[in-house]
Simulated assay, not measured.
Amino acid sequence: MAMAAQKHVESLSIDKSVNLQILNYSFRECQLSASGRQYDKLVVGAAIFRHIPNLTSSKVPCILLLKRAPHEPYFPNIFELPSGKVDLDDPTLKHALVREVKEETGLDITKISAQLSPMIYQTEKTIKSDAGTEAFVVKSAIQLNYVVSVSDGLVKLSVEEHSESRWATEEELDELDITDEAKAIIREAFQWSASQ
């Protein structure tokens, strides 16, 4: 990680109830899946809010959602929180969260305010070996979710991963293609926002 990025991560304001200093390898060893093994995939997600004026001139909380690209092997064309896999070279979960938000949105995290419930799910796909045989692969995943504030600016998508960004109100969630698991986390984020 570049020195400027490392200093940015270290200087972030984090609410004391959020533990993001956890070392990547420690989490993987301590948090096991229902099968008793390490999760195949560890993901971090960010609930990012902006308050946007509506027709009555009051400001309505809107959450940033990204639509997965149609060519994605998992959950194509589904809206999700900005999120991504924790890499083995991410020293802590905080480093992974900062990196993923920057990669997926072009925005810098300025504050980490709260931890939301984790989202546990499975991914499934059929792969072909070099010999031409097919195998069905199921992987376990856990997504750790946080409410964060970000720098001002426009969202800049990584077009390889997402086709659209949207600032959605809570009322709009039922109109969008979102998995039930993700929708529950997003509603939890709106509840947190309303309590502030």
Rank of each mutant, 00 (worst) to 15 (best):
N54T: 13
R68P: 03
P73C: 07
I52V: 05
S149L: 11
Y39R: 00
F27G: 05
G153H: 08
L64I: 07
V147W: 03
S33Y: 06
L42G: 05
K139S: 13
S26Y: 08
Q115P: 02
L116E: 05
V150W: 05
K125D: 14
P82L: 08
L55G: 15
S151T: 08
L107M: 09
S113N: 06
Y121F: 15
A114M: 01
F136Y: 15
I63T: 05
S17L: 00
K41Q: 15
S129C: 07
H51G: 02
Y146H: 09
L32M: 07
A47Q: 02
R37H: 13
E124R: 15
D108P: 00
K59I: 06
I48F: 05
A34E: 12
V138D: 01
V60P: 03
L154M: 07
H71N: 15
C30Y: 06
T133C: 07
I142A: 05
V44R: 14
S140P: 05
L32W: 03
G106I: 08
K111M: 08
K85C: 10
N145F: 01
C30Q: 10
K59G: 02
F27Y: 11
L65C: 07
V138K: 15
K16C: 06
F75K: 15
N145T: 05
N77W: 00
K125G: 05
L55N: 15
D89V: 09
G45N: 11
I142K: 04
I127F: 03
P76I: 04
